[in-house]
Each structure stands twice: as C-alpha cells, then as structure tokens.
Design a binder for these strands. Structure first.
Lengths: 340, 340
DNA sequence: CCGCAATGGTTTAGCGTTATACTTCGAGAA
DNA sequence: TTCTCGAAGTATAACGCTAAACCATTGCGG
C-alpha cells in the first residue's frame, strides 16, 4: 500500500487538493504553516507521487520508448556502438525527468509491438537500428515525438540522426591514397540501393575518382560483418589479388578479421596489406597493429538525438528533418606508407 | 487523442463497462452480437487500452525496473556481458507481458533515484552489477519483487543469481596444471575480503593446493581490468618472472592484453607463456591465438533471474536466496602443453 | 401465472492526481 | 454600512479503466 495524497491529507487535517498544491510547489494558495506541516508529514511517510495517476490526468507520461530490433540474442543491442548510445540517451533523458522504456521489436510484425507501447502513452520514442520498412510500419502505429538513428530513408516525416558515412568512406580511402596506395579493395556487406554501405562506398569511389583512379568492381568483396568473414576476406585478398596493397573495410570487426586472414596466409599488416576500418570500437586498439579507422562521436550523436526529441516533445515545432554527424579518421598502425 | 472505451461505447451504442468486458474477454455477460460489434469497432478505431489507467486500478503496473550503476559513459552498461543479459531479460519479460523500465543509478545517493522509480509502482526490479552497499540502500527505498545479479553479499533478504566464480578459477588453474604448468601467475583486480575476484582466487588456490603446489603471493599481479593494463602485466611477467609459464587472468580483456604484452617483449603465446582468461567475450575468438577461457551461459543466467522474478511477482513464495550458475572451460589455443 | 434463474446488460464507485470553480473569512475602500 | 478584494482553502469533476452490485427481460417448472 503506497502512501497517497489522501493519507497525508488525513494526517494533516486538510484536503487532498491542498496537499497536492504543496507537493507541487503551487504555494500561491497555501499558508506557510500548512506548507510546513504537509511537507513534514510527506517526508515522514516517504510519499512518492504516483506516476500512473499523474500520466492519466496529465496526458503525458514522462516516458520515452527506446526501441531496438530484436536480434535473437545477437546483433543490435549487442553492438557496442548502440549500447553506448543507449547509455547516453538514458542519462540525458533522466536528467530531464524522463523515464526510458526499453523494448526490443521482433522483425516480424513490428507494428504489433509498437501498438502495445501505445498503451503507455509515450511522450516520445527513439528508434535505433531499424530498416526503413520497419520504421514506416512502426511510425504508423506509434504516434509520438520521434527520433530515428541511422536511417537512410529520405523520409521528411521523421527526424533522423545519422553519420556522414560518405565522408567516412572518403576519408578512409583518401588516407590510403595519400599514403601511396592505388589498388584499394572495398570490403563490406553487399551494396544496396541506399543505406550505410552505399554511402561509404560512394565516399570510397569519390576519393578514387578524385585521385584519377578508376574504381574497379573486381576489388569489391561483399561479405557479412563478422570477424570470421573478415578472415576469409583477408585470405581471399592475399590469395587472389596480389596487386592490392590496401583495403577499406566498412567495419572494425571485419577489418580485424582481415588482419588475421592476412596473417593466416603468411603475410603481414601493414607491410603486405594496409587496412582501414570503420567504427573505432574498443577492439580497434586491442588488435596489433592497432587499427586505423573512422570514428564517430557517439556521445554527440546520442546527445543530438535527445536534443531533437526534447524539442519535439515540447512541441517547439522542430523541423530538422536530418542531422548528419561528422566523422573523423584516427590514424594508428595498420596503414603502410608506400611512398617512403 | 487516444481512443478510449468511451469512444467505442458511444459508437456501439452500449456502455463503457460492456466494452471493457469484451476487450478483456469476459464474455460471460455479453451476447455474441455485441461482442462482434464491439470488436469490429475497436479494431477499426485501433483501440489500445491505457496501461496507466489499468495500473492505477489494478495496483500493478506490469513494469519491471532494470537498474544499472551509472558509469559516466563507461563500464557497466557497456560491458558486453551485461548487455547480453539485459537483452535476454527484456525479451523474456516481454513474452510474459511485462515492460522494462531501464534506469541508470548514480553511485552517489542511489536511494534517491530508486525513490523516483517507486512512483511507477513497479511490479519487480532487477539490479545488475551493484555494490552491496548500494543494493542495501536501494532495497530500502524500493519495495518490490527483486532479483540481484552478481552480488556477493550473504544477504538472504534478496534473491541473488551469480556465477560459480570459484569453480571458474579452479577450472582455469586446474587446466594449466593438467598441462604441466606449476608456476602459475594470477592477474586480476586487487583481491578483496569478498567478491568475484576473491572467489576466483580461492578457486585458483584450491587447484594449486590440490596439486601439491604452494600458492606464491609473488605471483599475484593486481591491476585494473583493461586491455592496456593487461599489456603492462604481460610485459612485467616476462621481464620479472622468467620462471612463470602460465597465467590465469580474471578477465578476457586482461588476458588479451597480457598476450600482447608478451609479444611486445619478443616472446610468444602460448610457447613462452600460456594464458587462460575469464568471460569468453567475443574478443576471445578475435585474438590470435584464440583464448582459452572460462565461459558462463549468459542466457541461462538471465533466464534464471527472470524465472525467479516472475515467481516472486506472482508471490508463489519463493525463497531461493542464491542461485549459483555453472561455469565451463573452453579450450582454445592460448595454452601450451608442457608435457609433450 | 407466480417465482426463480439465466442472460445481457447498466450503474456506481473508486484507483491517485490535478484543473477549475466555488466558498469562506477578514480587511480595507467607498 | 456595504462592497470588493485577496488569502487560503474546499468541492467537484475528470483522466481511462475495472470490480462489484444492481436492474430488466425472457423462459420455464411448478
């Protein structure tokens, strides 16, 4: 039995409404004496207002849904990247008096789960790592302030915060070119019509073109983003592309695998093959040589997402459809300078 | 404006109560015709019951708090280990119709934040990765079903699910002994009065003793659990303990660092030094040689925690004070067999 | 054709809050 | 003296839902 306003009112010999006024600091209508008495009693009884009752009358729950694709025990929540983002989001929202409802969404029928969420009268929601089709289906059932992370849909309906992946791809490739490389492979998931990979690929092409190098489709290795597949890719490059001196991998996991694959073929990184990754996971500093990679400021990204959400919730009429976060190259030891 | 029972009732020409009965499948009191009509309308209007209103009357929120220590951007939520656990917990609770309220708790004054959580009338809570003092302070302000993960307090008040760390330490050390090692170092955080490290250390001692080897305090290296510190530890071992042929590290991160430190000194794993880790992170298979390590079944652990919580919430009067999860050794490539 | 039960509802009240309108009391202005 | 006004409350209703008690109509055995 939680303590309610009623309990305090009874003990203070006043009405529920007066107690409510005191608790909420609406002192205009209450004498100092009453304020003090009520406060003392509330303190003594360890009163905590009921969030459910409040949301009911306020038509606002102070609840923000953070939704992730359900990955059957792997992938998205597990990605260190997203985890850090969630941590920052939670802390920021907490600071602003919001609570985070964490929810994994099965890839089949995402709409049904979002419908369930609607029952909580969310003030806002953050979607992390969803496909565009899923976003649409979820958006349809969930009607709140919304910020999406890392979507590539040109959907002006939702606010989106994403990386400048193209620049990332450009930076990585450009760096390799600057170090004298000309035969540069691209290793990543299959390139689709639009999306992260496509953007990174575009950056890669741009850097090549700028340097007067014609992109060669034979140097594209499509593979899953896992360490094991990285190893395969590394071996394959060594075995079948002796002319290739450098690789741009779209993920550190892949890059780390490639490094190992190269070693498995009796060659070495960076002397026989230079590698640049993407993400700057902790892992990048655990491997040896340490991985040169493209990094993003996760905190900045999460912060931006929350800022947008907060603005949108306070309905200050935001219309920043898309925020593109900057990206940087971190030079470490996995690239060889061919010019010396 | 969310659709309410009232809206449906109006459209169906009946009362709110009847609609409520239909929605909740209490068909005893309703004619088939009415059931069909109401359902059709509810469907059409995309009615979703208000969770807040329901919790208010039901005195149960279907909400479970998952609380983590606030780590200022690092440590606990970030630990891949906990992340996986949270994922499993969320999924299981979701299956049982519960929602997860994720909350990071500042180490200073944990009680104040838990008080805030009380406002949500949580049905249950899971504490992950807290110190005993924090657990006590939080327990005091939060009055729900509770399961704690990885506590070492002998606190029969709360249900606790933890690893068999002692066995882990034993298994790791025993394995090294079986492979012919006798000078075995212990690398981990400082050993405290009680806790994870102490347990693992006890297992280490037990294995040594059993083999007739007297534990030598000189072989204990106390250090933080980071990759960088692992490197230092590895170098130190090579430089100052040439007689040591094997190490048990209490964390994979540390073990991976040690392997690199060894290499930095121009030596090799496992030929010059054998290494066994603990945790079986993904990382363990990314390093080369792959790391022999102690593994736990995270899914089983999370599952057990949720089972206990569910039982406790349905107040079936559980009193399993402590569940100790089993642990296993995974043999990979970081241990040399000295007997051959 | 009365009484009684089943069928299919409706009404009332209450969960813990808050917004809004209304009351009471005393003091100062007209 | 009456009128007005501010201070300090109180009373009522509403948020969306459910439990529980309360009708109304029909059908049927006695």
């Amino acid at each position: 039995m939680a303590v309610t306003l009623k309990d305090i009112a009874r003990e203070a010999g006043t009405t529920v409404m007066t107690v409510s006024n005191v608790i909420n600091g609406r002192y205009g209508k209450v004498s100092q004496a009453t304020v003090d008495k009520v406060r003392a009693i509330a303190e003594k009884l360890e009163y905590v207002p009921s969030a459910t009752a409040r949301s009911l009358v306020a038509r606002s729950s102070r609840l923000v849904g953070v939704l992730l694709p359900d990955s059957e025990g792997h992938d998205v929540l597990v990605s260190p990247h997203n985890v850090a983002v969630i941590g920052v989001i939670e802390r920021m929202l907490q600071e602003h008096g919001y609570y985070v409802l964490l929810r994994s969404i099965p890839s089949s029928d995402p709409g049904s789960v979002t419908a369930a969420l609607r029952s909580w009268n969310l003030d806002g929601a953050v979607f992390i790592g969803f496909l565009d089709s899923q976003i649409r289906s979820m958006r349809a059932t969930l009607d709140t302030a919304l910020v999406v992370l890392d979507s590539y849909e040109k959907n002006s309906e939702v606010m989106n915060v994403r990386l400048d992946d193209r620049k990332g791809g450009y930076l990585a490739t450009r760096h390799l070119i600057d170090k004298g490389h000309t035969r540069i492979a691209f290793v990543g998931p299959r390139i689709t019509e639009r999306g992260v990979v496509k953007e990174r690929y575009n950056g890669y092409r741009k850097a090549l073109r700028e340097a007067g190098i014609e992109p060669d489709d034979a140097l594209i290795v499509a593979t899953d983003v896992t360490h094991a597949r990285g190893i395969e890719a590394g071996r394959l490059l060594i075995a079948q592309h002796p002319d290739v001196t450098a690789v741009f991998a779209t993920a550190d996991l892949l890059a780390a695998g490639i490094m190992e694959g190269v070693r498995a073929e009796g060659k070495d990184v960076p002397s026989d093959l230079s590698v640049v990754g993407f993400d700057n996971l902790d892992l990048a500093t655990y491997v040896s040589p340490q991985l040169t990679t493209v990094t993003q400021d996760l905190t900045a990204k999460a912060t931006r997402a929350v800022e947008l959400l907060l603005m949108s919730m306070s309905s200050e009429g935001v219309q920043t459809a898309e925020t593109v976060m900057d990206v940087q190259l971190v030079e470490r030891g996995s690239v060889r300078d061919l010019r010396v």
